[in-house]
């Protein structure tokens, strides 16, 4: 059995991924190169389309990264696979929508949609993020704290919670997708790309800011230091007199906060939808499996891969097989796990 020491995945690898160039990695690189050449040929035919869908893929990747980074953070430090992470994402959007609706108080007879101001966008965002973060802490304290180390049981508990949350969302939240109103929704002229929507650009920007902030937190703060140490050797950190439980609470707070943030952003860019929980759980899983569990760099790389695959396969696959596009995700998983069983940036336990 895997021993407790030497955790497979670690947040700290964000600082210095040491990608060893083995035969397997080489194989992966060749596949990647072939894909790039294939797309390149298509891109030459229509540069604007290519630029647009690349940007689509990258902004989608931004959303994926925010969700997956929270998932990987919790996993890296605590070895808790939070199967309710997708539910956190979904609830994040729902809470923000409900708060915003209360604030804007739209006239039900009015045809024009209520327009959010900066305040009536940011307040729901903040309320929602912190509600989800507190929910995360609550779940950690009530359900997960006392069975630390029983990974499977913790995963099962979060699965059970996600079933309950999903069913209650169906019962309580309306039938169709809702949109979170944003202060500005228009398109701007970009070089090569042409007209492009602002919300997606903002999403991409937020994802980059989140990524940088996480790296800084992990590398520069005392919290981050303990997280890094805790990832490597939890017993030792405890023995040194650090209250690891507090750090766990912090990690769960931050991880859930990120899921909530992503839920709000996703609700603003796409829509708030009560069936998003399963989708975003799967996305988080695939990203951290591909990127390496616990690795922030891995989450970023995994998110970009998945985002680009999503948007390229929508456009560049021949019509007859677009429906099999999901197989690309399957093969991505197979290839990565075949050559690097612990993901691109993961470390074996």
């Amino acid at each position: 059995m895997a021993s407790g020491s030497g955790l497979t995945a670690e947040v700290a690898s964000a600082l210095g991924p040491r990608a060893r160039l083995s035969g397997g990695t080489l194989f992966l690189l060749i596949i990647l190169l072939l894909a790039i050449v294939g797309i390149g040929i298509q891109a030459a035919a229509d540069a604007t389309l290519f630029a647009q869908i690349t940007l689509n893929g990258l902004s989608l990747a931004g959303l994926y990264f925010i969700v997956a980074s929270g998932f990987t953070l919790i996993f890296g430090l605590m070895r808790v696979v939070n199967m309710a992470h997708g539910s956190f994402y979904m609830l994040g959007g729902i809470i923000a929508y409900l708060v915003q609706e209360r604030m804007l108080n739209p006239d039900p007879t009015s045809f024009d949609l209520p327009q959010a101001t900066l305040t009536s966008f940011l307040i729901p965002l903040i309320v929602s993020m912190f509600s989800i973060a507190l929910l995360g802490v609550l779940i950690q304290q009530v359900f997960l704290r006392w069975n630390q180390g029983q990974e499977l049981r913790q995963a099962l508990i979060t699965i059970a919670l996600s079933i309950i949350i999903a069913d209650q969302a169906v019962a309580r939240f309306g039938g169709i997708a809702k949109e979170i109103s944003v202060p500005v929704r228009k398109s701007i002229q970009l070089p090569i790309v042409g007209m492009y929507g602002t919300t997606r650009l903002v999403l991409l920007l937020v994802a980059i800011v989140v990524g940088v902030a996480l790296v800084l937190i992990i590398s520069r703060t005392r919290f981050g230091m303990i997280v890094r140490a805790g990832v490597d050797d939890r017993q030792m950190v405890t023995a040194l007199g650090v209250n690891i439980q507090k750090v766990f609470v912090g990690a769960f707070f931050l991880g859930a906060l990120l899921a909530g943030l992503a839920g709000v952003l996703g609700g603003a860019v796409n829509s708030v939808n009560k069936s998003d929980d399963g989708k975003f759980l799967l996305i988080s899983l695939v990203i951290v499996i591909v990127g390496g569990m616990g690795s922030l760099t891995g989450a970023a790389v995994g998110a970009v891969l998945l985002g680009l695959i999503d948007s390229y396969s929508d456009v560049y696959l021949p019509d007859a097989i677009t429906n099999y596009g999901v197989l690309l995700t399957f093969f991505l998983l197979v290839f990565v796990l075949a050559v690097r069983p612990y993901g691109l940036f993961g470390r074996p336990g």
Partner: peptide
């Protein structure tokens, strides 16, 4: 693919395959 992983990783990987 999955047999190279253990415990909780195995759970996650097989879930991903199942959903795919």
């Amino acid at each position: 693919i999955a047999s190279r992983s253990e415990g909780i990783y195995f759970l996650m990987i097989t879930l991903a395959f199942g959903v795919i």
